[in-house]
């Protein structure tokens, strides 16, 4: 059952899966971009980004663009590695 072991519980949700997918192919994404792409509410998205941040899979940077606060997210090397493992495990499970 080593295959199942590689399925990462931290990614086992559509929103988290989406966040990680977006951050894998973009250097960074800000909160609004994630919200738009994932169709999530503020609170929902915030709780999922927080969970991923706690696992140290994504990095959060707060900054100001002009006067507007802007939160942008990027993957950590650990997050990239773990997510890749997760994708590989998924692909093996569906027999690809």
């Amino acid at each position: 059952m080593s295959l199942i072991d590689n399925i990462n519980k931290a990614f086992d949700h559509r929103i988290r899966l989406g966040i990680m997918s977006i951050l894998m192919v973009n250097d960074y994404a800000d909160f609004n971009m994630l919200k738009e792409l994932l169709g999530a509410t503020d609170g929902n998205l915030a709780s999922h980004t927080k969970a991923l941040e706690k696992e140290d899979y994504i990095k959060v940077e707060k900054q100001f663009i002009g006067r507007k606060p802007n939160t942008r997210y990027s993957t950590t090397p650990l997050g990239k590695k773990e997510f890749q493992k997760h994708i590989d495990a998924l692909e093996k499970l569906i027999g690809k």
Binding site: S21, I22, V25, L90
Partner: peptide, 22 residues
């Protein structure tokens, strides 16, 4: 049943990757 969910996950990943970068 389970593998259906995994399939959905994979297609969601692919969809998000292309929609966010292209």
């Amino acid at each position: 049943m389970e593998s259906n969910k995994y399939l959905e996950d994979i297609s969601e990943i692919k969809n998000m990757m292309s929609r966010s970068s292209r």
